[in-house]
Amino acid sequence: WAIVMIFFLPGVSRILGLSTGVAGAWIGTSEFADAAGFAAAQAYGNLAGSVPGIPGSPDDAVNGFVLMKVIGRDIWIGIWALVLSIVATTRWDIKDGVKPNAADIWWRFPKFVLGFFVASLIMTAISSQFSLAEYKKDVVPVLTGPIKAMRTWAFIFSFLSIGLTTRFRELASVGAKPFWAFSAGVVVNVTLGFVLSAVVFAKYWSALSG
């Protein structure tokens, strides 16, 4: 479904004429994989300025996606994962005569959240020394530009690896029930994400770069 959404979400956004910020937020609420979401947001952002009827700047799509997916979803997932890891260690998995081990909480905790936190601290420390105009003029070409290039290659190798490691026979052996269950989740996620992004908070996402 992540691969399908790379084409589906930008395509529907283009048909509806969504602004890049709104489309990016919708992709952020709907995509389950970070790499696929970035690819979809970048693809739609690239249409801004070259395709009539698509308002917003190219960066708004990726910015909206990052704000929604990474900050709005992934970090909260990390927080709840920490809470559940504590509950599981101290309540659910208690064995008679065995005290809860704090190391179990660490092993259950999703480490990617720490990466987000450290990256945020680094970028905040760098950007806080510049005004917005100075940041766009001096920092973006030197720092953000190379990172975007690295991101593109990282996505290419990620999808190449996914393709090389996919085993359709193993997927088929699981049966159809998991597929339909996940598909139902996709429908709910995409629908709810559209309502929140394009209806409830449309004004905010449309003015993302304003």
Rank of each mutant, 00 (worst) to 15 (best):
A103F: 13
D104C: 05
D104M: 13
D104L: 13
I105E: 10
I105K: 02
W106L: 12
W106P: 00
W106Y: 03
W107Q: 12
W107M: 12
W107K: 14
R108A: 15
F109I: 12
F109M: 15
F112M: 04
V113F: 05
V113T: 13
L114M: 15
L114S: 12
G115I: 07
F116Q: 11
V118E: 02
V118D: 05
V118P: 00
A119Q: 00
S120H: 02
S120Y: 04
S120W: 06
S120C: 03
I122Q: 05
T124M: 09
I126S: 00
I126M: 00
I126H: 00
S127N: 13
S128F: 02
S128E: 06
Q129P: 01
Q129F: 03
Q129M: 07
F130M: 09
L132Y: 11
L132P: 01
A133L: 09
A133T: 14
E134N: 00
K137N: 14
D138P: 00
V139H: 08
V140R: 04
V142R: 08
V142E: 09
L143E: 01
L143K: 01
G145W: 04
G145Q: 04
P146W: 06
I147R: 03
I147E: 01
A149I: 15
A149D: 14
R151V: 15
T152P: 04
T152Y: 13
W153H: 11
W153I: 15
F155K: 01
F155R: 02
I156D: 01
I156S: 11
F157Q: 10
F157G: 02
S158Y: 10
S158A: 10
